[in-house]
Design a protein around this nucleic acid. Structure first.
Lengths: 195, 195
DNA sequence: ACCTGAACACCGTTCAAGT
DNA sequence: ACCTGAACACCGTTCAAGT
């Protein structure tokens, strides 16, 4: 197991992926060519193809490595048994999205790409499953106090998917129609569905 | 004003756009070439370029003509002064999306496309403004009974954007993670944000 | 006026040749 | 083993020539 060489390869892949991400943020998925990434990275076409078998694998790597929502804090709170309401969980995940500086427009473009690229869709399902697991765990204490024992798991899982959907709605809406205040959004959803 | 000839031109554009839409549903935006549309329509490259100045204009035409959510019923109900709660409005718009057979995956792909195509973004903003206006009108009776006179317009407009966001979330979520029951989704959002 | 289809510049990917 | 860059098949778009 050549540890050093593996680390070198990985660093090189990261270097290429970061250069690609800079171009993607500037020009978008459709208008980013391999030639653009060649220019931005200072490498050659062949160099890139010796680290990624094609453009789709590079996209997959970027999505799995850089376009993920981190919510370690929520999982830990759940393990300590602290109760977080779905509303608190939603607010935390929305703030995390903002703070990590994930570009909403680029995320939406990759959703579109996943509709047409099975490998990218699989990668997104993988990272989403991880997020879904953390959300479900974070919601279980609340679900336990809100449902009969037999229905706790179902309630936690359904609510996790709902929170993911609310996040996706926020991402798609702000990408297309411009920024919106997070607290105002959550308050508005709560008011709207109260009746 | 050559009425007949204009109608003919429009029919021809429609014919091309419908052929393109069939290919788009099969292959997705990225993997649909002009050559594919040529094959599906039975016309030639030049014939298509004599009716649309480029692929972007064809996309714009398809989005404005076929990928819109119709909610005439809501606007009429509002004009009759009937009160619809935001929840009822949301359910109606979600059912409309489903019933019209709008392909969620394709809609998400066009959102991504709009991130990179200013003309398409403008077209989407236009149709969204129309939807937003209908939603705001449909929500005004409810807003009148829920807020002080001075805040009615703001509440109706904010709630309209929220409902649009909830629709977008549903579209993105089902496109990426598969179908979900509409009533269960709305009930889950309501439960999640009650606390 | 509408249509044809060959021609052009550019794209993603490959591969013989270098180090 | 990694890298180079010319070469290949394909894409969107144009345009001289037809009807």
């Amino acid at each position: 197991m050549p540890k050093v060489s593996d680390a070198y390869r990985e660093a090189r892949r990261d270097e290429i992926a970061r250069a690609a991400l800079r171009v993607l943020e500037r020009q978008g998925v459709r208008d980013t060519s391999i030639a653009d990434i060649v220019d931005e990275s200072g490498l050659s076409t062949g160099a890139i193809y010796s680290h990624f078998s094609n453009k789709a694998e590079l996209a997959r790597y970027i999505v799995g490595r850089f376009l993920i929502v981190r919510i370690d804090g929520l999982r830990e709170a759940a393990e300590r048994g602290e109760i977080r309401t779905p509303r608190e969980v939603l607010l935390e995940i929305l703030r995390n999205f903002d703070d990590n500086g994930l570009p909403a427009g680029l995320v939406v473009q990759f959703w579109g790409e996943a509709m047409v690229d099975a490998g990218l869709h699989a990668e997104m399902s993988r990272t989403a499953a991880h997020l879904g697991g953390s959300l479900t765990a974070a919601l279980r204490p609340w679900a336990t106090s809100a449902a009969a024992p037999a229905e706790v798991d179902q309630l936690a899982a359904d609510t996790a998917r709902t929170i993911a959907t609310l996040l996706q709605g926020f991402v798609a809406n702000t990408a297309v129609f411009g920024p919106r205040d997070i607290d105002e959004y959550v308050a508005s959803v709560a008011t709207a569905l109260r009746t």
